[in-house]
Amino acid sequence: MATSMVRALAALLLLATAGTHSAAASDFASERRRMMEQIELLARQTSVETGRPAFDARVMTVMSTVPRHEFVPPDQVDVAYANRPVPIGHGQTISQPYIVALMTDLAKAEPGHKVLEVGTGSAYQAAVMARLARAVYTIEIIEPLGLQATQRLQKLGYGNVQVRTGDGYHGWEEHAPYDAILVTAAASHVPPPLIRQLKPGGRMVIPVGAAFMVQQLMLIEKNADGTVSTRQILPVAFVPLTGRR
């Protein structure tokens, strides 16, 4: 086949592919906008409980740009941007967008901060935090999910996130202390190792309560003298934190 013909066919193929990607991006952009509208609405509706009628602009920008559809199984892509949890296998879920935005907002991560996440799941929350903080360390107890998360983050270019397979109850001492800690599974109590690994002035956001029941999303703040203050934010429903106590 003549070189000119090969080039022409290649150009047509590129145009067709670009058109497909463009259409898909447009579809997701529309779904993303609807997701952001839902987050804004719920932030206003829960402002009495959270004290936050609107989330930080940096958080909202990140929520509008991280490709949530990349963090769900292929058969769940159609509902990736729906404001509800989405199953990701192994009895786990990716949290609803509003809850991800709320927890991220409460953590108050800054560009120089180091963040610990307990419960990697699909790595969506870690990806959101990675756009706001200097480094994110995330722990997943279910090995297949941890491996998938590592591969997904590498593929999408999140080089400031490290994933470890293990029991997150005990935190990740090697990189402590942390400016913020997010726990994305419900614990019966606040794990003492995580309190110890939280930097003075740091914040932890964690759902606390019985497994498969309504829990309370808690904000834990560590004072300069090492004491902690706690505040209930909202009733929530998370999968349970597993592992040895």
Rank of each mutant, 00 (worst) to 15 (best):
Arg244Gly: 07
Pro235Ala: 12
Arg152Cys: 09
Val228Trp: 04
Pro193Ile: 12
Ala211Gln: 11
Leu241Met: 10
Arg196Cys: 08
Ile195Ser: 03
Ala210Asn: 12
Glu221Val: 11
Gln76Ile: 05
Leu198Asp: 01
Thr61Gln: 14
Gly202Thr: 05
Leu41Phe: 13
Arg32Ala: 02
Ala2Ile: 08
Val66Leu: 03
Gly112Phe: 08
Met60Gly: 04
Ala29Ser: 15
Thr230Phe: 09
Arg32Gly: 02
Gly159Gln: 13
Ile39Tyr: 00
Phe238Thr: 01
Ala24Gln: 14
Val48Arg: 13
Thr61Arg: 15
Leu12Phe: 13
Leu9Cys: 11
Val77Met: 07
Met204Arg: 05
Val62Ser: 06
Ser4Lys: 15
Val183Pro: 00
Gly51Gln: 10
Gly243Cys: 04
Val100Glu: 03
Gln38Gly: 09
Gly168Gln: 04
Val100Met: 08
Ser26Gly: 10
Arg244Pro: 03
Met63Lys: 02
His21Gln: 12
Asn83Asp: 15
Thr120Cys: 06
Ala186Ile: 05
Val118Gly: 00
Glu117Cys: 10
Thr17Ile: 14
Pro192Ile: 11
Glu221Thr: 15
Ser4Trp: 08
Val48Ile: 10
Gly159Trp: 09
Ala180Met: 06
Lys114Glu: 14
Gly209His: 04
Gln92Ser: 06
Pro97Lys: 01
Arg32Phe: 03
Met204Asp: 03
Thr120Gly: 04
Ile181Phe: 03
Gln215Asp: 09
Gly112Glu: 08
Val205Glu: 02
Ala176Asp: 07
Thr138Arg: 01
Tyr98Glu: 00
Leu153Ile: 11
Leu14Trp: 10
Pro191Lys: 01
Glu173Phe: 09
Gln92Asn: 07
Gly209Ser: 12
Val118Met: 03
Ala185Lys: 01
Thr230Ser: 14
Asp105Ala: 10
Gln232Ile: 07
Asp167Ser: 11
Tyr81Ala: 01
Pro85Ala: 12
Ala135Thr: 09
Met5Trp: 12
Ala109Ser: 11
Pro85Ile: 07
Pro144Lys: 13
Gly209Pro: 05
Ala80Asn: 06
Arg245Asn: 13
Gln151Lys: 12
Thr184Gln: 04
Ser188Leu: 13
Ala2Lys: 12
Val163Trp: 00
Val72Gln: 00
Ala135His: 09
Gln197Glu: 10
Leu106Gln: 07
Arg131Cys: 10
Ala43Glu: 05
Arg32Pro: 00
Ala82Ser: 11
Val236Asp: 05
Glu40Lys: 10
Asn83Gln: 10
Tyr81Trp: 07
Arg203Glu: 10
Val163Pro: 00
Val239Asn: 02
His90Asp: 08
Ser64Ile: 06
Leu15Ser: 14
Thr165Ile: 15
Ala127Asp: 00
Leu132Glu: 02
Leu132Ala: 04
Met103Tyr: 03
Glu31Ala: 08
His113Ser: 15
Val100Ala: 06
Lys114Leu: 13
Pro111Leu: 14
Glu143Cys: 04
Thr20Arg: 11
Arg134Leu: 09
Tyr81Ser: 01
Thr61Pro: 02
Met36Gly: 05
Leu234Asn: 02
Pro111Glu: 12
Pro87Thr: 06
Ala210Met: 13
Val214Lys: 09
Ile233Met: 11
Thr61Glu: 15
Met1Lys: 05
Gln216Glu: 15
Gln92Ala: 06
His189Arg: 13
Ala23Met: 11
Ala127Ile: 01
Arg134Gln: 14
Val190Ser: 06
Pro97Gly: 04
Ile139His: 01
Gln38Ser: 15
Leu198Ser: 03
Gly201Ile: 12
